[in-house]
């Protein structure tokens, strides 16, 4: 029943034997201890488990790990370089966009993919695109401001994309 999968996680090649019923989130957390991706609902409604698969955000709680075979995965752990934080992470800190922090990794990953695709996203576009990431603490205002801040930097061309 078990399957061998090989994929790239945060730049490192990984080979694992997985049960078909394991979701990608289950493998990232329980088998690789990449606990930055969170489970908030397990049903694709809250976005806390968001990771990038081949550069696109997906709910890792809905994707079977076997389906990640051959893919390139980026989790929150792969975003900062050593102690150098990604501009989005810096902006989240500076703008006060983090309260309990449980939704934050998913928020940052969705925001990253959004800005990769649309570097000068408007507030309205940010709100629409990030609707799949629920937050119960912030009311979203400061999260949107943080993403906008980075969008502004990208527009100004003074930011090296991480």
């Amino acid at each position: 029943m078990n399957k061998n999968i090989t994929f790239t996680v945060n730049g490192e090649p990984v080979s694992l034997t997985v049960e078909p019923r394991w979701t990608l989130l289950r493998v990232l957390r329980d088998k690789m201890f990449l606990t930055g991706s969170k489970e908030g609902c397990g049903e694709g409604e809250c976005g806390s488990c968001t990771v990038l698969v081949d550069g696109k955000p997906v709910n890792s709680c809905l994707m079977l790990a076997v389906a990640a075979d051959g893919k390139t995965i980026t989790t929150i752990e792969g975003l900062s370089r050593g102690t150098e934080l990604h501009p989005l992470q810096k902006a989240f800190i500076e703008k006060g966009a983090i309260q309990c922090g449980f939704c934050t990794p998913g928020m940052v990953m969705t925001a990253k993919s959004l800005l990769d695709k649309n570097p000068d996203a408007s507030a309205e576009e940010i709100r629409q695109e990030m609707a799949g990431n629920l937050c119960r603490c912030t009311g979203y205002t400061k999260i949107v401001e943080a993403v906008q801040e980075v969008a502004g930097q990208l527009k100004g061309g003074c930011h090296e994309n991480g």
Binding site: G36, E77, S80, Q89, I98, P105
Partner: peptide
């Protein structure tokens, strides 16, 4: 003063451990 939160950076990086993150 609006100083940055004491735990904001570990929450931004996903390092912050929540109860379910303990193995």
């Amino acid at each position: 003063n609006s100083v940055p939160k004491i735990d904001a950076s570990i929450k931004a990086t996903g390092e912050a451990l929540f109860a379910a993150d303990i193995y």
